[in-house]
């Protein structure tokens, strides 16, 4: 997920690992099929802002590696 460019959208396909954190992400609504939009990145590899539905959340880039997405054209 940390490979998609700013401003583009993607669909969540799944997770590579399962732990308390990925469970929390799923509780937040980042489940299979959720369409997310990468709104912006903070400078110097800082956190990333993601929008989906009526939610906006912030994550650190290294925490995104476990979320698998399919980029939408």
């Amino acid at each position: 997920m940390n490979e998609i460019p700013v401003g583009s959208s993607a669909t969540i396909v799944g997770y590579t690992i399962h732990n308390a954190f990925t469970e929390r992400l799923r509780e937040f609504g980042l489940i299979e099929g959720t369409i997310i939009k990468l709104l912006r990145k903070a400078p110097w590899n800082g956190p990333i802002e993601v929008q989906y539905g009526h939610s906006q959340i912030v994550l650190r880039p290294d925490e995104l590696t476990n979320i698998q997405v399919k980029r939408m054209m």
Binding site: A20, F21, R24, L25, F28, P47, E49, S55, Q56, I57, V58, L59, R60, E63
Partner: peptide, 9 residues
């Protein structure tokens, strides 16, 4: 931490 950084805006 059980939970890494995750914050709502």
């Amino acid at each position: 931490s059980k939970l890494p950084f995750l914050m709502e805006l």
